[in-house]
Every structure is written in C-alpha cells, then in structure tokens.
Design a protein around this nucleic acid. Sequence first.
DNA 1: ATCTAGATCGGCT
DNA 2: GCCGATCTAGATG
Length: 207
Amino acid sequence: MSRRPARPAAYRPLARRFFARDAVVVARALVGCLLVHETPHGRLVGRIVETEAYRGPDDPASHAYRRTARSAIMYGPPGVAYVYFTYGMHWCLNVVTGSPGVPGAVLLRAVEPVEGAERMRRLRGVGPEVPAARLAAGPARLTQAFGVGPRHNGTDLTAPPLYLAAGGPRRGTVVAGPRVGIRAARDRWWRFGLAGSPALSRPFPRL
DNA sequence: ATCTAGATCGGCT
DNA sequence: GCCGATCTAGATG
C-alpha cells in the first residue's frame, strides 16, 4: 500500500480559477486547504481551519464597500494577496476573490500548523507554553507565525513562495457563524470553520 | 470563564 | 479626529 507522505516534496497550488468565484463560496471551500510559505529558512505549512468572506458594495463590513486606494486591490484579479494593517500593530492576510470589477476577498483567520511549528514559535516570539495548535489561531497570529507582512500585499497566491494548496479530503464538518468583530450584517453568516478544531481563533457560538 | 485596558497608527468620514 | 476584519496581560467572578 502506498500512502501520501506526511511531508510531501511539494504541494499543489490552487489554480486561479478556484478564486474566481463568490467570496462566500471560496471562504467555505478554503477550509481544509493548506497555506504554504517557502522561506529561505524552511517551509511553513498550515491547514486552514477558519476563514471569513468579505464582498463589495453590498457588504458594509467590507473594506471594498467603497473603492479606495486601499481596497482597490479587492477590485482586481483573483488569487492575489490583500494584506492590510490594523489596530496600529497587526497585519492580516486575505486572498482576493471574484473577478476584476466584482470585488471580494477571504480573510484567513486561523490555521493549524502542519510543518514548521518550531519556526512559527520563534516568529511569534513564544515558548513551549503555547501549544502548537494555538500558534496561528487568529488572523494576526497567523501572519506573524508565517512571516507574512506588507511586502506580500499584491503578490500572487497561486505560486511559491507564498501560496494556497489543496488539502486532500476534508476531515470534519464546516460550520458557519457571524463574522468576528463585525457589527453590521450580523445575520450574514460568512465566518466558516472546522467544527471543534483546537486551532480556531475562538469557538463558534451555538445557536 | 469572562472582562478590561492598553498598545499604536493608517485610513477615511 | 475617530475608530478599527487584534492581541496580551492582568483583574475579577
């Protein structure tokens, strides 16, 4: 019996057309996929356990609700990174969805480390008291653990060094809930997660 | 378990 | 000027 090795020599990037769909569809589909960063110091890999969809002029919570210098990238081609700065100190990573003129993006909120947990620990500046599953359990923790920052804004996420990859058959159930930190449109359940994952930024409310 | 404050600054009303 | 698509440490039930 030949089985998939735990640490394959390479991962298969998701094609650009994967992202050329509605943000809500892509957000749900990305749960279980992989985030890969090939750095000079080694490869960092995490399984995506939490995402959020942000759309365009119909979504008051989205940066692309209005087209501005910052949000213009969400109006561009899909499969591109949108990295923004918030709260004076944090960076968050999105992948642009839809098609030029139809804005959208998916915020990567949490991954469970698959490869490179030790390096992630150093990048986070935390010790062994933090369990591996908590190293990238939040949008700003994720970027810090993966060494992602402003230099990645506008880069292509369908090819190395920083890319998204297929994750094989999805284990577990995808659940939905209101987006975190969003007051507007709380009835739109555009936050998706792997039910019961220890790497979620926070639990999904039971309703 | 749940709350609060404080850090810190770019974007945009 | 105000306010975040956040995180951490510390206090309190």
